[in-house]
Design a protein around this nucleic acid. Sequence first.
RNA 1: GGAGGGAUGGCAGAGCGGACGAAUGCGCGGCUCUUGAAAAGCCGUGAGGCGCGAGCCUCCGUGGGUUCGAAUCCCACUCCCUCCGCCA
Length: 426
Amino acid sequence: MIDIRLVRQDVAAVRAALARRGVDPAEVDALAAEDEEARQLVAHRDELRAQVNALSKQVGEARRAGEAERAEELAGLSRRLGDELRAVDGPAEAAAGRVRERLLWLPNLPSDDAPDGAGPHDNPVVRRWPDAPRTYADHQRVPHWDVAAALGILDLERGARLSGSMFPAFRGMGSRLLRALTALALDRHADAFEEVRPPTLVRTETMMSTGHLPKFADEAYAVERDGLWAIPTAEVPLTSMYRGEIIEEDRLPLRLTAATACFRREAGAAGRDTRGLLRVHEFDKVELFAYATTDQAPAVHADMVGRVEALVQALGLEYRVLDLCTGDLGNSSARTFDIEVYAPGCDMWLEVSSISWFRDYQARRADVRYRPAGGGSPRFVDTLNGSGLAWARIWAALVEVGRQPDGSVELPEVLAPYLGGTRTIG
RNA sequence: GGAGGGAUGGCAGAGCGGACGAAUGCGCGGCUCUUGAAAAGCCGUGAGGCGCGAGCCUCCGUGGGUUCGAAUCCCACUCCCUCCGCCA
């Protein structure tokens, strides 16, 4: 959540910043008004409480001094104030609760340098690789579901039998390719990122911390009986790894990476781009994550983008980098770069990574702070994360790009060591 | 699944109705001593909120209750740990 103090100091600035991403200014004004009201109620409540506390102290003193009568008198006075206090306490708590609730639902402020825009169509392309667009042969213009079916490496029908549509089953070299991709990515990030294998079912608080709840409950699978949620991304458990902790500054940036399955209901996207692996309910992904100071964050962010680009290049896929505009920015993010690879078979740019800087929006929810090296009060950390990478779509692109005239698939050289020396499927 | 134990500051750990936001130790910061360091000694050191400020308020797992007054008593819940059983 954002810092309520920003609203107090400069409502206009918050209103303007959030308006850039389509939040109704009236909501910000309502928040400011409720905060003002809550503060007055709380101040009054605190004042009464101070009086009760002072009187209670005097009761104790009088009693110890043997002045029973005076003690009784003071206690009576305190009792009356206590009644008054109880009358004020409820409304004050309720008002403070309303402010908290509003803050929980309010999205993050976009970074100043995030481009303005209304939606996905306004995302500027900041880079593409290779510089000159590639050309593709006819034998590469076959969608991956057809390529894969012919090779027996993807079994959508049986996956659907087990779990429903959009739950793919990979087979043979198709399955091994996923394992190879995960191993390759984890190895490449091992120099700076500690590998973690977190749980994939998490508590409600854990989903709250990243901002996936309460707003996006419909997007997540819930295991209701046990009060657990299936993670939509490893960002969720990784962000909460240090929940409630204070980290020494010299440990920052603290970087983690994890390979996990990710589960998404895709409730709002029913029927869109659902063929093959374009949009699935469960997929594997390697996630990059960091806690950092605000000063470190831009460099950490840039490093993550660089790593992901290098990985996509190593896989030989054509891609472009988008700077997400304010209208398309994720709820919790201040700045996000998306990486899309080109899949010639279905002639689509597929989002395979989203690399975001959340400032302290998530840390404030998750209560993760650091102790500044020079001493002083703990501060909230900044969190950053990005996929490095999401495999289902990478798999699809690799299969389409690598398709040979004879229907077999040729995979990039870097994967050979992870595929038992071969790079051919078929 | 059964039986117990527990939740207090950065960490460990006391406290079991009033002088407790909390002993003590460790850690951390400053100072003294020292050529420097270590050791030793002295002093300081929880977090959050409100207020220009003096200062005030909140926080001892969470929520309720008793009381003039709750870390301390009562109720409910959550979480953690140990042992037994079952199990990949």
